[in-house]
Design a protein around this nucleic acid. Sequence first.
DNA 1: ATACACGTTTGATCCACGTCAAGGCGCCGG
DNA 2: CCGGCGCCTTGACGTGGATCAAACGTGTAT
Lengths: 247, 247
Amino acid sequence: MSSQPAYRTINIHQLKTVCSACSLKELCLPMGLSHDEIEHLDQLVYTRKRVKRGEALYRSGDPFNSLYAIRTGFFKSNVLLEDGRDQVTGFFMPGEIMGLDGIGQDRHSCNATALEDGEVCVIPFARLEELSREVRNLQHQFHKVMSREIVRDQGVMMLLGSMRAEERLAAFLLNLSQRFLARGYSPAEFHLRMTREEIGSYLGLKLETVSRLFSKFQEEHLVSVQQKHIRITDVEGLKRLLSQPAA
Amino acid sequence: MSSQPAYRTINIHQLKTVCSACSLKELCLPMGLSHDEIEHLDQLVYTRKRVKRGEALYRSGDPFNSLYAIRTGFFKSNVLLEDGRDQVTGFFMPGEIMGLDGIGQDRHSCNATALEDGEVCVIPFARLEELSREVRNLQHQFHKVMSREIVRDQGVMMLLGSMRAEERLAAFLLNLSQRFLARGYSPAEFHLRMTREEIGSYLGLKLETVSRLFSKFQEEHLVSVQQKHIRITDVEGLKRLLSQPAA
DNA sequence: ATACACGTTTGATCCACGTCAAGGCGCCGG
DNA sequence: CCGGCGCCTTGACGTGGATCAAACGTGTAT
């Protein structure tokens, strides 16, 4: 990757690299930008990085230089307490941006780990700021990305702070479903890339509880679960769970 | 720069209004900016807004136009579920910025309410974006503010997802204490502006649990509590609670 | 002053979820 | 094809915090 020749116009791989040619441009940072504006972005992302399953994209404490736009693969972010407790703070899929936590302190405040082999676009942050001083819509788009991350976090707080275990898992499945749909995958049938323990950590539950709930949902014909393969058979049923505070 | 009258020096109220003359400039948006840069900001904030205790600064669904920098008073933000459940997502004090949730969808996604009479600086967002295209450091500073909000939210997730009730309350008190300290108030003795119920909602606990924990902390000589007046008598003791997963 | 309303404290009881423990399934390497 | 190791499921039991209920301050309005 590193030794790209100068005559890049004839390099097919490079062509596929730029935002303007990326299939995720409707979901990712370029969302809502005009064709011309996206071409400005092509100067921004000149590095890709492959990450193998289990590898860290960055770790808490690492100096912050870049944001990462996921091209392929599935990632998680998590924070560790001194005593070893571990809280998963998010799951990320193609088109989503990781690393926003690093801007405020010039170092990352969480770990980002690949849940399967994947590839990310490296976005040098100084360059992004520079470019967004020139391209108004890019600036605005970037602000939207950050704001949506804040809103997403509010949703997780709602989940952790006021929902019961059942509701949390239902909300989680519906959220994944929607995000798969937005990416052109089936919203009804998908593969969970994370373990029960990671789901539990994210939802503030123990892995046994998550497992039991999957079994319960299956008995109630809301989903059909086979290990990591999930098939949602009754979306409305899941949604109904969310509006029913008590059992 | 454009429409400022030349004789602005004689307007006392105006003098107090501008960022360059604001006592909170070390904590608020102008943090880290040079004197000259802060003067640019003076064109940004031309409206203040008084908010009475219990009044909303904005509500979920309201169109988004401005951010709000708190000058005086104490605020909370909360989200409501259809079924009436209410999650407090944050408490805000002077120098902190509210409204960042609105950027992503052009409407606010939570409510912001005054816990006591207060005053905020209205920051028209379009103007902020414009100015931050011109003033590099302002741009960067604003990005830091947003990023820190994301990191703060991660902390709350950690709290809600992996801490026990005792630890949550201890973490909450220590957090308030630090923020009061940063504002020049006593970190050891302060007045809680929110009710037990609001604290509970924020921490994912019921008000009775919060009340019991205050009593427990008092018995253990960690704090002395009298209604809303709190005095932290053993900071180290509180910190110790945080690193002890089990009782 | 007085009184009401609201917020808080405290006790008794309950239950959702955690903990501990024992298999079971499926995948990978030998 | 076999054995081992993650990961998952399921059961039995324990407990932290919720719920229900009853007083008790305290600030605010009359």
